[in-house]
Amino acid sequence: MKKNKLIALVIACVLAAAMMAGCGSSGGAGEEAAVETHEAPIVDINNGAACKMAYIPMGAGQEDFPVILQGMQEAIQLYPNITLDTYDAGFNPSNQIDLMNECITQGVNVIFLNAMDATALNSTIAEAEAAGIPVITINNGASGVHTAHIQNTTYDAGYEAAQVISGMVDKGAKTVILDVPAELKLACTMGQGFEDYAKETGAFEILEDYAQTITSIEVGYQAASEVLTKYQDIDVLYCVNDNTAIGAAQAIEAAGRQNDGIIIWGYCGMPAALDAIAQGKMTGTSYSDPFYEGYAAMVSAMNYVQLGVNATKLGNEFYADVMLPTKNVTEENVIETIRGTHWDMSAYNY
């Protein structure tokens, strides 16, 4: 028992000592003192200055992560002085926070982030920006101020897809939107764009805006099966995600209704969806190439470090919101799209 006391005491002393050290170094001026504000340093990358960047996706399993990364690497091909490390947060905001802190400690020059939660990361993002590190969010943004946000259009994609589909069906076509999980609706507004077009033109009659639990092929299949039994007469299934669309196509096939001419539209333009369009199982998708998101993010980042700018330097206001356009892909242009994509199509024969 005495040993235990001793150990507890020793640990307590060590920690107390460490805290005293902490007091000494930061001047003991209260809570704000530890957040030291730095200007973003100017890194002359064109003349070989070392530059360290970090990319924190939601998790290593994020579908577009390898393609985004490919785009980033393409952009720094000619810069051996720029290193890019990636970290796996395992789809957990807490881990993303820890990793952000880690990157701040390491003193990286830029952080790329697919934020898991629009709020939870705000304080570490602010800390990073305060430390002079530009934070660039890709697709999944954060509500707090940071240097830049890059994503493919969602609202416009929905609106434009509705335009294209309206040319394929009669006015007042019965439509179900298979939407994103409830918590993502604010960030992913393609469903909203589609609905707004329908309201403006009356081209579609929206039967239901169906919120799925997650977006996956299985859930898409289940949701579509449910919707197909609920509404006998359906003309359009607008899916806000390609996985959902693929699941929906399978559900239509399983219900034996593949000849009813139901239009299935997706979003993203993943390999499986492009294949499904080429096979005639899906009508079309709002195609985007994450490669260019990665490329654009990296090019912006390189500009920021050369100029030494970030949100802090610009008075906590600068917020570049870059929207990359999507392309409507249907049977007509699918083959040419496949030839040009950076998605990994090697599993399919084209």
Partner: peptide
């Protein structure tokens, strides 16, 4: 304490 640090709570708080 974690919620106070992260200024919010979300569904996969505490997972794992």
């Amino acid at each position: 304490f974690t919620v106070a640090y992260q200024t919010t709570a979300y569904l996969n708080l505490g997972s794992g």
